[in-house]
Write a protein that binds this DNA or RNA. Sequence first.
DNA 1: GTCTATACTCCGATAGAC
DNA 2: GTCTATCGGAGTATAGAC
Lengths: 192, 192
Amino acid sequence: MRDGKTGGQIVERADDLFYRQGFEATSFADIAAAVGISRGNFYYHFKTKDEILDAVIEARIAASREMIAGWEAESDDPEQRIRGYIRILTDNQNDIMAYGCPVGTLTSELAKLNHQAQGAAGRIFTLFRDWLRGEFERLGCGGESDRNAMHVLAWSQGVATMANAYRDADFVDREIAEISAWLHDRAAEARA
Amino acid sequence: MRDGKTGGQIVERADDLFYRQGFEATSFADIAAAVGISRGNFYYHFKTKDEILDAVIEARIAASREMIAGWEAESDDPEQRIRGYIRILTDNQNDIMAYGCPVGTLTSELAKLNHQAQGAAGRIFTLFRDWLRGEFERLGCGGESDRNAMHVLAWSQGVATMANAYRDADFVDREIAEISAWLHDRAAEARA
DNA sequence: GTCTATACTCCGATAGAC
DNA sequence: GTCTATCGGAGTATAGAC
């Protein structure tokens, strides 16, 4: 029942609250208040909290696919496309400084809760990982492509964590410039 | 009252549980059961959950200071000393794959909870940051020293997050080798 | 589809006996 | 210093009126 107007709003508000407050710290009352419905009405749309989480993860996967499609539409050059991923750090700098990376923090929390949705959340990472690997392959990185994809993911996660810890925009800017330079080196190396 | 035998045990077990389950997901009942005391007895030692968190953070700061002292005792060479920090990833690989970095995940969680202890938790990062900066200065990195310190912190945090997401020991090994090589380059650059 | 009312569990925290 | 008993509140979830 996640496709009605109210169902969609629940997922949308839950997504936001899970990001800003964390999954466990967000109660049904929080989501119901954000949507503007009663707690009882809630269970018409989702039977359990885990069902909402599954829907939120699905929504995040769909949103990620759209981002990727956007980078693919922007340019055919793999270096430019990968730069699209790095641009996430720039475009969401304020949110990242306040709440960290939505994917990394959710994955961390679910790991500690030993939650069943760990696998689903991991698929968001894998979506980006596989796409990045493909672009690095197109760039000519060959057997280093997956390694480079993981390196970019790890680097951006590290930047997000430290940006969140110190709320330091200059640090983020410097690291983005370094990732960008590293990527340029990979492209130059592949051309050689 | 954190200095008696039971008080110390509470902090020790709470530290472990906060790491493995998260701060919010860990209840007084969990800690009491782990220590082997009743919930009521608990409040003789700590009046609130936040007091336990403060004590846990203090304990982690003390433990971090001891680690740093160990690296300083091992070698006088700043490059070798910094390698001590990187070795955390090797020595705690299994725990990191299962639960992430204790500092990074706590900082993330407290940020989302908008918890008063955010500042205290941030001091653990600052302890390592300041020490690393000092060692990079001794290495001859000059004005780049703090930047390099933050880079090492971010890199290790990124590795921890992705190691936790994929439970991939090979990835950790490869990234450690890359951090090590990067550090070696910084040392060579400073000598030139 | 949306509401109120409510059941039941667990939480952090307190009081007071021993 | 440790225990049992218990409070007040919040959490997830359900039943049933409208």
